[in-house]
């Protein structure tokens, strides 16, 4: 959907042909979401079919065909800015699914899964940060810099969520161990093998019951 809307938004500036649209789309978003030329033309065809764009009449016959917005297309483009992006149906997130399964499938070392992912996400975060350092937060680089911010915030949120998963899992392990041996008491908690690796944020809750 974002390609379709993106193309309509770009066409509010001036008529363009497919290749120009592709270039502009990638330049504005820093090439983060590459748009291949086939996608650009297929999308233009669909937009034309839906009556939102039309070829520029009396254009140079030897040049690539340029498209402009119809009245309906212009209305759709301006409606896009005021309509919030829908957040009701969560995007399918492999990591969330993986961890939901990891905590339920027996025998999975959740702490190791979390740590492996944290390293990977932090590496991405570091690399985005490097790019961000060189992107000027004004002028033509502003759009690119903000796209990077979006990626940085998302990666940061993912790391925070991973930390949360880790301590929640540690907490659950402690609770399980306590229910299994209700008479064992708090003194034993530190020697409990299931509590190993609960150093996360989980210190202090052992022996609560």
């Amino acid at each position: 959907m974002s390609i379709r809307q993106g193309i309509l938004a770009l066409l509010t500036e001036r008529p363009m042909h497919g290749y120009q649209l592709r270039q502009e789309f990638e330049a504005r978003t820093g090439g983060t979401w590459p748009l291949n030329i086939g996608q650009a033309y297929t999308t233009l065809q669909r937009l034309q079919r839906d009556g939102l764009v039309e070829p520029v009449p009396d254009d140079d016959a030897n040049a690539p065909e340029r498209f402009r917005l119809t009245a309906a297309g212009a209305a759709e483009a301006s409606a896009w800015w005021t309509r919030p992006v829908e957040r009701t149906a969560p995007a399918r997130d492999e990591l969330a699914i993986k961890l939901a399964l990891a905590v339920t499938v027996p025998g999975v070392d959740v702490v190791a899964v979390v740590q492996r992912q944290r390293t990977e996400t932090l590496r991405a975060l570091r690399d985005y940060t490097r790019l961000k350092r060189d992107a000027a937060p004004e002028g033509p680089e502003l759009a690119w810099s903000l796209v990077l911010d979006s990626l940085i915030f998302a990666a940061e949120a993912e790391v925070r969520w991973l930390d949360h998963v880790e301590s929640a899992v540690a907490r659950a392990a402690v609770a399980r161990a306590t229910t299994r041996r209700p008479a064992a008491g708090a003194a034993q908690a530190s020697g409990d093998p299931t509590a190993v690796g609960h150093g996360a944020a989980g210190t202090g809750e052992g022996g609560a019951r």
Binding site: E26, G30, G31, P34, R123, R126, D127, Y128, L131
Partner: peptide, 16 residues
């Protein structure tokens, strides 16, 4: 984390 890979590997667009 290792010291690499750098940003080149990160963004598939390679436009920049």
């Amino acid at each position: 984390t290792g010291a690499d890979p750098g940003p080149d590997h990160l963004l598939s667009g390679a436009v920049r």
